[in-house]
Design a binder for these strands. Sequence first.
DNA 1: GCAAATAAGTTGTCCCGTCAACTATTGCGG
DNA 2: CCGCAATAGTTGACGGGACAACTTATTTGC
Lengths: 174, 174
Amino acid sequence: MTDDTKWLNAEESAAWVRLIAVAELLPGALDAQLLRDAGLTHFEYVALMALADAPSRTMRMTELASRTNATLPRLSHVARRLEERGLIRRFPCPEDRRATNATITEAGLDLMAEAAPGHVDTVRANVFDALTAEQLEQLYVIAGAVLAKLDPDERLTATSCQFSEGPVVRTLAG
Amino acid sequence: MTDDTKWLNAEESAAWVRLIAVAELLPGALDAQLLRDAGLTHFEYVALMALADAPSRTMRMTELASRTNATLPRLSHVARRLEERGLIRRFPCPEDRRATNATITEAGLDLMAEAAPGHVDTVRANVFDALTAEQLEQLYVIAGAVLAKLDPDERLTATSCQFSEGPVVRTLAG
DNA sequence: GCAAATAAGTTGTCCCGTCAACTATTGCGG
DNA sequence: CCGCAATAGTTGACGGGACAACTTATTTGC
């Protein structure tokens, strides 16, 4: 039986098992903490953060969907729920009346301010506390190389910094 | 306003954005290819692979759930569907009559043999083709360090190698 | 040995995401 | 300009996963 498939060697296989395990467990860990402490899924958190970081805290639905790797129907459902909770507001775009703009509300910003510290703690506890400075740099490079394949247009990474002294914190600081 | 939260610095924030993007995109890419070419989700693929690699191609439901990071109800639903498709069989465990054993069938092994090459190709195309040998080693170490936090019991990684000349391939060759 | 506690699975319900269909608006070719 | 394709977004139906309730079997404690 001929087999021209280039199977993974031992090193690749071992690394793959670990990478898959991380990709499997990390979202669950983030969701669990955010749901428990702020009633938000990680997806909702990212979407709200994207709005908070946007100019005038407003973004088109299509743009937001692209940045968060969501389909438009998914984002529409999520936006409806967030709007019902008073965390965002939607209104038709003046320039293109097909489009809808979403804005994070003050209540939304308050919730983000409340949720962010616990989330950052979780990120540290699960990831960065385990890494050296050197490994942090390596992770950045490796993830970048993989993303060049998975996300060649850089839809997900074309975002301003999310956790340092960004617009949200500035907003909170007044 | 005092704030004792240790926010992410620029390097950490940049690495985090990329890591989250990978964790977000990778499962979708794997699911898409496997669903298209074999009608299997990545979760089903991993579950079948775990069975194929198990001694006598059989495993307890609880053990399989633990290895695949699934709740027991979820695995039960998935197992029912896989059984309806003739890919696995379930039968009560003789030693503990509470328990259920799952076995992958010949049809299941055939499907795995059919699906594996395309899956490995996808893994290479999206991950390993982008990495140097040095980065492969770094990825292994970094993912291991993160998993020590996320999965201290090594439930997900206590598996035999999945892609090199393992039991599945031997079964196919024999 | 028996009752209570625990463990293994299954089933049903609810919620979220995907897909398909639909509306409304804009852009484009003739 | 006018008709048609393309774009933006919403809605409803369907399917998968989480959670709770339940059944059955085993273990533990007395």
